[in-house]
Every structure is written in structure tokens, then in C-alpha cells.
Write a protein that binds this DNA or RNA. Structure first.
Lengths: 203, 203, 203, 203
DNA sequence: CATGAATGAGTCTTCATTCAT
DNA sequence: CATGAATGAAGACTCATTCAT
């Protein structure tokens, strides 16, 4: 077989990535509205028209960034195995995942700022996309709480509410790490957060 | 009681409140950037120039709204008395305060939406103002955690981090209440949240 | 009774007229697309924003101009009275009308150029408006030819076709008058045109 | 037959024709300004750069189309022979020519639409080019009217004006034929038009 | 010759703010 | 004090044209 049919011109792919990176930074610095195409192309070192060669609109780049981030995050979140004997203990699995997610987000500062900015994106579609994304995570957490309660691992509680609280905690902690000039290490952050969260819900 | 030193013409004060209320709704509906002076003056039923008679700029109204909210919140938060014999038990005091705060925020839907929209407003000034607002609240929480730890009520922890987690939890839960079509009662919300939070940090 | 309720601020009306006049000239000089808002406001001696205070968009001014022109032209075209004894002879009525219409159009050079530019206006709506306008005139002509034939004044012919030819003649002649550096007088123009047209269709 | 002096590479010539055809359709559909190079090369199935290998600019293609049309029209118009005994009667010659011209134009719908769209193209150059095109035709007609008058065939008149009227008539009638969903046959059209025109100017 | 990625000047439109009445 | 007309800086997007491969 010859090389894949969908293999796009690598140079174009590279250009695209370059623009995406510039846009991500600018969006993170200035928010969606504050980010001007001018700022993006300046950072990307390209001409105005070139931008529109790779993205239909300002909204389109923004969406692209969100899509990629959501894909990456999803790839780092897996259902925790509690029954399989061969699997690591649940708390170990959990900790590993949380660390992975945190490292990904905190390692990509622009992305983190973008995600934290959630709430009010100007573009209705993008806002809905973000809402949906966080909704998914909240659902994931809620189901985890529910099954934890079923098997007696976790105390009886209002799963919806607890899930919302957990998600909020995560966001709050990330925000701290992002903004704090000398933030605690990821390890410390995750430990503290898990301690609070687990003590809050364990049976 | 003596009248305030800054007591302005009551008619002016009323006008000001009217504009503030209109602006709060518009900001809540459309975010900082999406809110136009046009929308605000239309809602406030005043002329364009009048707006600038009461506020220096768009940013100024926004700041005013946050200031008022912060003042209102502070008024609902008092140092919890742990030594005084006459005082109610700390947990009761705490619960009463949290309920008061929640009722204030959730009762003012526009304010709640405005605050939730936090993160990144495009306007640098506005974003900083919001950051500062939440920073103040986080400080409040951090000091509470610190003194709780000092008197041995709370476990040893990273106060900054725990405060951030708490603030995040609060935001997450408020978001749920605001957006959920049939949200749990404030009582339930506060109970659950306090349970999680306290178990997470009690010694 | 007080002054009319719909009497708009005369100053605003004047401003509007001023912009309209500037726009008409610019459109005539450069066509719809070639006309830039920049050119219009420069000619009207107003700021960019002011333009949008009086007109929603570039299209809106254009439409306004067309509307006015069509109204003015319609006011100059009346059904010719052939049965009434008191009326002037048909040919005299006809001549008077044609002269009036020509004087109006030729006297407003920008308008003439605009109308001649018909055909391809960029904006679909505007194009349809123009088509409709000329369609009305063609219908008027067709009905005139039809009734002329009925009463035996005009020869038997294909009314649709003849009407189209007449309308074309009018446009062609106007174009000449507009572009010719030293055009014949309106009197001559109308005489010659009516001669050709009448000889072409009289019984 | 000897080969033309300018005989270019036939392949290139073909390419050129292909682009010309595509451009003609696009211009007809969208007007000069509305036609984008993008649309033309898409229709012509060529790359962007290739277009500029065959034409200097957008204006150049437009000019080329008009030039070709003018050449084709001229090829269908010959001086009418009135003295030669062997020639067909003048009216027969005229009718044949007019039919030929009409068939050419109406048979090439894109060209017809392009020409009808005349008047004002936003681009000054293009507008001038169209004006020139019709100016040439008007001259042709004017000279015909002048010589007709000289030999006493036509009545004394203002040749310039009559030529303009004739040209307008032609345009008007073509417009009808092009836009009418069930237009009269070319034969009918030409007959009616010639009747009107000739009665209008014969001595 | 052909290609198509890159360019950047030029458009329309919005909106916070000012100021004469 | 109140008004609202006027302002103009700023931003997103288009498209004819060029040029390295």
C-alpha cells in the first residue's frame, strides 16, 4: 500500500499548527474578543490573508483549539477499573489520572486560561461546546460517585451536587496554579485536592 | 445613627442604582464585552450622555457592580466566634453564614451569572477586576482555614490550596443551582457542600 | 392642533438629505461597489459613524436613493386622457409628460447614471427593485400600446416587444444625453424620439 | 489557406479559450465585480497562477471578451449594397444582417447578459471599456443612418440621436428575449423591431 | 509551463466616548 | 442636570496579484 490518502501536505499542517499555537496564546492573553486577528498573525508571523487560508474565521480557530483540547483531555480520562483483579488499586489509578490531566492542563498555560475562561464565550456555539465539555466531565464524576456509593465505598450523598462541587474544586485549584507566581508542585496540589475530595465523600 | 458623610442627593443615588441594576442585567445576559452602553441605557431608560454623568466609563459600572457585591458579601460574613461561651456552636454559625451568602448570590441571578462568567473578560481591566474580586474571597477563606488550623479545629493543610478548592466548590455549586431547571433547595445545597468541605478539612 | 406628530427634527432631515446627495453622486461616479463609505462620508463631510446613524448600511442608502427616484418618476407619469373632451390632445399630453420625465432625469445627472447602471447591481434586493421599476414602466408602455391599438390609433403589433423597444429607446437616448459633452436640447431629443416612436407605431 | 501570422501554440490557444469561456459565464452570472478570479479558475479547472499566465489581470479578460464580441459582431455586419444591381434588395440585406446579429448575441446567453449588465461596472476601467464597446456600435449605426439619409433613403434626422435610440431599442429587445421565459422567436422579434425602426426613419 | 501558498491593501461596520444645546 | 447627535479608532474579512517551487 502507498502512503495514506488523507496524509495532508506536512508543510500546510505545520503552518496550521503554527497559527493555532499563536492563536492559543493570544486568546489566553486577551480572551476571545480581546484577541484580534492582527495580534494572532503578528505572533504567527504571517500575513492577514494567510490566516484566512487556514481558518474560515476567528471563531473557527477558537473552535479548533477547543476541539483539540477536549480531544486531548478525553484521551487522558478513563474509567477506573475497580473489579478487575489485575488492575491497580482504584486510588492509585485515580491519582495517576488526575496527575496526568493536571500536568496536561497546567503544562499548556494558554489552554488552561482558555478553559478557565469558559462561562462567557461570545460565540454561542463555542460556549455551548464548552458547556457540553464540562457537562461531560461532571457526568463522569457523578457516575463515579454513584457507583462508589452503590458498592459502599462512598457515603450516601447528592451525586449531582457533589459532582458539581468536585468539578468546581478542580477548576479552582487549576486557577490557583495558573495565576500563582510560585505555585505548589503538581504532586502537592493533587495530593491535597484528592485528600479533601476523598475525605469529603468516602463512607 | 449619623448620616453618611458621602450622602449624595437621594435622587441622584436613585438614578445611579437604576443604571447599576440595568447594567447588571445586561452584563449578566451578554458578558462584559457583549454588553453595549446602548443596551444599558435602553434598559435604564436614560439618554446616552446621562450614563456618563454617573459613571466614568463602561469599566466603571462593572467595577461598581463588583464593589457592591463584595460589600454585600462581606456584610454577610463575620468572624466565627469559637471561644465566647455565649456564641452559638461554630458549625451553626458557619452554616448560617454560608446560607446567607448563597441566598444573596442565588437570589440575585444577574449577579450570579455575572460572577460565573468570570475567568476571561476580553477587557484586561475587567478581567483583573474580577480576578481581584475572587482573590479577596479566596483570601477570606484562606485566613479562615489558617485560623481554624491554628486552634486545632482543622487539619494541617496547604491553606492557599484548600481555599482555592473551596472557592471553586462554591462556584461549581452555584453554577449548578443557577443553570439547573429544578435545582435542589438552598438548604440541601449548603448541607451537602458543608459536609464535603468540612470532612475534607476537619482535623 | 399642535404641529404634526410625524414632523421629524428638521436638522436631522437635512443631514439625511446631505448624506443622500453625497451618496448619489458617489454611486453615480463609481457604481455601487466602487462607492466606498469612505468616499461618501468624505463628500458629505461627516464622520464614519455619523453615516451609520442615518443609514443602516451601504445598501440602505442605495435603496433610499432608488426609492426616492422611483417615487419622483411615478409622480411625473400619468395615464393619458383620450376620451375626456376637456383634456388636451393626446400627443400634447404625451409630449409634456415625456419632457417632464426627461428633464427630471437629465437634470439629476447622478440619478440618471444610477438608473442607467441598472442591470447588475450587486445587491440582489436592489437589483430586483430596479427590475421591478423598469418592469412597471414597460407595463405602462405596453398597456398604452394595447389601448392605442384597440381604438385604432396604433397599428397592430406585438405590444410586449414594442414596449421593450420603447423603453430601450428611452434609456439609449438618456445615455446619450448624459454622456455626450454637448448634447442636443431636451426639446430636440424628445421631438426626435417621439417622431421615431410614433411613426413606428401609428396606424 | 495560409496560417495566421500570430498563430500561437494551438494548445495555448485552447487554454486561453477555455479560460475566456469560463470568465464569460462567471461575469454574466455575477457582474464584473462579483466575478472573482477564484470562481473563474474553478470553472476553468486551472490553477490560480495559470490564469495570470494567459491574462494580465481581471480587467484584461473582460476586455478580451468584449474584443471578441466586437470582432464577431463586425463579421456579421457588412455595408449594405444599394447600387449594385446584382445585390439583394436593401431591406432583405438589412434583415439578414440583423437576424445574424441577434442570433449571435441571443445564442450566447452569457455574452448577452454580460453586455446587458453594462452601464456601471464599479471598476472604472471596465465601465469605460463597455462604454467604448457600445460607442463603437452606436457609431456604426450613426454612419448607417447618415449614408441612408445622403442617398435619400432615410428622412432627415439627428443621426447621433437616432443611432442612440436604435441601439437602445436593440438592447431593450434583447433584454426582453433573454429574460422572458417564453420569448417570441427571433424572426418575430426582428420583424417587429425592423418595422418600428424603419417606419421611424424611412423617408 | 503549471501550481497554489502567501500577501496586504482595502471594505464595511460597531461602539465607547464627547460635547454643544 | 439631561440629552442624543457626532465622532473616529479599531476590528473582521475579501480578493486580485505575485512568486518560489
Amino acid at each position: 500500500m502507498a502512503s495514506s490518502v488523507v496524509a495532508l501536505d506536512p508543510a500546510k499542517q505545520e503552518r496550521r499548527r503554527q497559527i493555532l499555537a499563536a492563536a492559543k496564546t493570544v486568546f489566553a492573553d486577551s480572551g476571545y474578543h480581546g484577541a484580534s486577528i492582527g495580534a494572532i498573525i503578528e505572533r504567527a508571523q504571517i500575513a492577514r490573508g494567510t490566516f484566512y487560508l487556514y481558518f474560515e474565521s476567528k471563531t473557527a480557530v477558537f473552535d479548533s483549539i477547543l476541539d483539540q483540547a477536549m480531544k486531548d483531555l478525553r484521551a487522558r480520562i478513563r474509567r477506573i477499573e475497580v473489579v478487575e483483579q489485575t488492575a491497580a488499586p482504584p486510588q492509585v489509578q485515580l491519582r495517576a489520572q488526575v496527575v496526568a490531566v493536571f500536568e496536561y492542563i497546567v503544562g499548556d498555560r494558554p489552554l488552561a486560561m482558555l478553559l478557565l475562561s469558559a462561562g462567557h464565550t461570545p460565540d454561542v456555539e463555542a460556549a455551548e461546546r464548552l458547556d457540553q465539555f464540562f457537562g461531560e466531565i461532571r457526568d463522569l464524576l457523578r457516575r463515579a460517585v454513584e457507583s462508589g456509593a452503590e458498592i459502599g465505598l462512598l457515603r450516601k450523598c447528592h451525586p449531582e451536587l457533589v459532582a458539581a462541587a468536585m468539578l468546581g474544586m478542580i477548576r479552582g485549584v487549576i486557577e490557583l496554579v495558573i495565576h500563582d507566581p510560585s505555585p505548589p508542585s503538581i504532586e502537592v496540589v493533587v495530593s491535597e485536592m484528592l485528600t479533601v475530595a476523598l475525605r469529603g465523600v468516602l463512607a
